[in-house]
Each structure stands twice: as structure tokens, then as C-alpha cells.
Write a protein that binds this DNA or RNA. Structure first.
Lengths: 242, 242
DNA sequence: TGAAGTTGTCTATTATCATAGACAACTTCG
DNA sequence: CGAAGTTGTCTATGATAATAGACAACTTCA
């Protein structure tokens, strides 16, 4: 065969191979930790050159989906959600890009008052009225993180009800006329899940979590909301741009 | 820009442009008969070379979605369903390939006896028991054709109920263990829709129809079913392989 | 230790993708 | 008719995709 892609569909051959392998991983034909067939074998099944397979595997490896070990084979990585930490990242977009369905679920929404720290983050005075939203975010049916979000009760009246209806922070902000926003400085630490979060994340007690604190700003730099998120470490992998 | 495709995603640039235009046609931004923007203008909106736009338009023209008129412009064709007449064609696949959802709807299933002609087509004796299935097939919510299908009542007992449940001839045959089948000789004529079919196809009286008679065989050549289909001529366009 | 099997890297060739410019052929409209 | 705008076709160039072969580097296992 000297054609570049099947039926000149405008989709590169290596992409078709990569998609095929990814589907195999997604539907469990290749489980996490499994060894993929050798490059030659994959090349034969797809009737493609070994280098084309390598191109496909390289693309998957870049996304952290597989890991090649020289002399041994290529292995399926623990299928962690690749979570790029850019200034403009939306949970729904990240999850959707991985071919999974993003879901949001409200746990609790209640009034709160700003501590000195929260007030500083949000550019308010200590004791200012806040709305606190506790929510779970899932990819398909897998809980990824629990997050506590604080917003100004004056700027976003009735925010809890709006989030309950939209199940999306992005849509919540859009409801108040905020068309775009960015994440400011983000702090990442790790910890051990507590009993409450363990139940919410369907996670065994004692498992590690990634703790992320971030404040989102609008395009003018005005603080909109500050978040305290706890990610199931075994299900997510943050990607920081180099 | 000297890159071949956006973010080296494995999808050709012309494909992205073609998909974008096709989406515009699908969601009504460009209606049937409309003139598309000029090639230069499209090139500017997609920030792409004019030749790349031409490649995209050529792909759409090949599928019959648009028609270029030299010196005048490129126009959206009457959006007929492109129906390739190969030996192995499935309605669901054809409709699905066009980005529309295939649907089937049972009108009536009843017992019948083989005329001399039907018996010859199905390899049975005249007077043999048959099941006759009347069905409508749609793309999204647009009726495409009405078809009358005859099957041997002995080979496919209770076929009507199975079709009512599966709404697919392919699945019906699979239910009886037929994994694959091919269409044999196909006869195509044209006619005027009668009152019954006009109502079923949501077609005005007096409109033309394409009449297709075909018999499907299994891979050993044994006749499985014979069909008499009436297509709304203004909604479909048969493609015969060259 | 050695053989077999695996991934990594190199060179080389061909086809396609994408861009660029120029001009012909044609349609539309004043 | 003539000008403006459109699609059609040609040549040319550089980047990428895909194939092909060879060999190095490494792991696994008998």
C-alpha cells in the first residue's frame, strides 16, 4: 500500500491506529498495566508499517495513556485523567477531550462568612457574606474530585440554586454575565483523604489525594471565586505546560 | 503558517474546513440552493490557503453536497441522501455516514403466499407461506423510503414481531443467525407516488418516486428476502460505483 | 551466558498536504 | 461591451505522512 490514509479521508493513518488502541484501552480489552502487543504485531493487525504504529504509540504516550519500556514492551498506564493546568481550563473540556462524559453533582450549598484568608483571595473584607458550594465532579461515573467553592454572596445571589440547576461552574458564571474567566495562581499539595471525602469520592480510607487551591478571575483580573479541591490521586494526573 | 494541520492532530486541514462547511449546511446556516461564500472569503474565515478550501469543497462536491459553478459561485445542492448501490449496503450505515440518524418504523406485518414471481426470486414454490413486512425508513425525521419485504415464513418464523422489536432488517436476520448478506441484482425504475405511500412518506401527491426491487442473498447465494422499495426521489440520490 | 524478542534510532524514498502566485475561462451586472 | 468577481488550472516549493531496511540497546528467559 502506498496510500497515506484510508480512502483519503483526511485522517492520518497513525491517528486511526492510535484511536483504535485507545478504544481498546477504554473498553477494557487492554487493562491498566497490561502489555500491548508488540509494535510488529500491531502493524500487522492494522496492515501498516511499524513506524506508523510507533507514531501512534508516541501520541498515546504523550498523553500518558501508554508507556514504552525498551526491550520489554509497551504498557497501559494507570488510566489517570490527564488534567492540564493552564490558565483557562474547564473540567468539562478536559474530561470531554478524553472521550468521557463530564458530570457535576451538588452536595451542599450554604451561606458562609469570609475568613481573613478567603477575604484576601476574593478581594473582600473579612466577614463579608459568601456562598459556599460543595460539589463532586465525575468523569463518566468515576468521581474525580470534591471541591469547595466560595463566591461573594453579593455578586452572585442565589448561586447555590443556579449551580444545582446547571451543574457547571462555567454555566453558573455565564448566568451572571461572566463570559470567560481564568485561573490565577494555583497551589497543589497532597494529603490523605478524610472519611467524608472518602465516601464522596468512593475512595478507600487512607488513600492519597491531591489538594488544589485556586482562585478564578475574570478577564479584568477581578476575583470571582476561590476553590479548595481534593482529587483522588489515583485517578488524575496534572499536566503542567513546559 | 507552515504547519500541515492544527496542532498536528492527525486530521488534515482541508478536512476541518470541509467539516465546518458541512456543519453549516446541516444546521441550516447554508440552506439548499444557497450560494456559499467565495473561496477567498472562506479561506480568510478559516485562515487557510484558497487551494485548501478548494480541496475541502472538492470533497464535499464528490459527495454531492455542493456544486461549483464556474464564474458564479459554489452552491449547496438539494440535500439528497447519497445512497451508494453496492452489493453490501446497509441503510443504517449509509444514513449514519451522512451524520444523520437512521430510523426504522414498522407499518404492518402479515402473512402472505408466494406468487409465481416472488417464489422464483426467493427460490420457493408458488403458494409457499411468506411474511410480508411494510416499513418506513427515515434519516433523522425525514422519511426516505417505504419498503415491502417478503421473507419465507418457514425460514423466519415470527419475523414481523422480531422486526417490530429490532426495527432493522440487519438485526432481524442476525436474530435468525444470518451474520452477513449481500444484495443481488437490483432493478430501479421511477414512478408517481400513490396516495398510500404519499401519506407514509409525507410527500405531496404527484411527486416522483424511485422504485427499487432487490433480493438479498446470504454469502452462499441463498435468497433471504426480496424487497420492493419506493424512495422519495427528491430526498435521495443513488450512487452507482464506477 | 546466550538466544530471542522488544523498543530506540538512523538513513532513505515516495506520496500527500499546504502554501503561493499567476492566469485562463466563465458569469454577473451596470 | 467592459469591469469586477468567480471558479478552473497550471507550476513550484517546503513540510509532513508513510513506507522500508538496518542496526543498536535493552529485557526476558531458558
Amino acid at each position: 500500500m502506498s496510500m497515506q490514509d484510508t480512502a483519503s479521508s483526511g485522517v492520518a493513518l497513525w491517528r486511526l491506529v492510535a484511536d483504535g488502541i485507545e478504544r481498546g484501552i477504554a473498553d477494557g480489552r487492554f487493562a491498566a498495566g497490561d502489555k500491548l502487543p508488540g509494535e510488529m504485531e500491531i502493524a500487522e493487525t492494522y496492515r501498516v508499517n511499524r513506524h506508523t504504529v510507533r507514531r501512534a504509540l508516541a501520541a498515546l504516550a504523550e498523553r500518558g495513556l501508554v508507556r514504552a519500556e525498551r526491550g520489554s514492551g509497551t504498557y497501559v498506564e494507570a488510566q489517570k485523567l490527564a488534567y492540564p493546568l493552564r490558565s483557562r481550563t474547564r473540567f468539562s473540556e478536559i474530561v470531554g477531550a478524553g472521550g468521557r462524559e463530564p458530570r457535576g453533582q451538588l452536595i451542599e450549598a450554604c451561606d458562609d462568612v469570609a475568613t481573613r484568608e478567603l477575604a484576601r483571595e476574593l478581594g473582600l473584607k473579612a466577614g463579608a457574606p459568601l456562598v459556599r458550594i460543595e460539589a463532586i465532579r465525575l468523569a463518566d461515573r468515576t468521581p474525580i474530585c470534591v471541591s469547595t467553592t466560595w463566591l461573594s454572596a453579593e455578586l452572585f445571589p442565589n448561586a447555590g440554586a443556579v449551580f444545582a440547576a446547571t451543574r457547571s461552574m462555567t454555566k453558573l458564571l455565564a448566568h451572571y454575565g461572566v463570559r470567560d474567566y481564568r485561573r490565577g495562581a494555583t497551589r497543589i499539595t497532597a494529603g490523605i483523604v478524610d472519611a467524608t471525602d472518602a465516601a464522596r469520592l468512593d475512595l478507600a480510607l487512607g488513600r492519597p489525594i491531591l489538594v488544589v487551591d485556586a482562585t478564578d478571575h475574570d478577564l479584568q483580573g477581578k476575583p470571582l471565586m476561590t476553590k479548595h479541591s481534593r482529587f483522588a490521586a489515583e485517578r488524575v494526573e496534572f499536566l503542567v505546560e513546559s
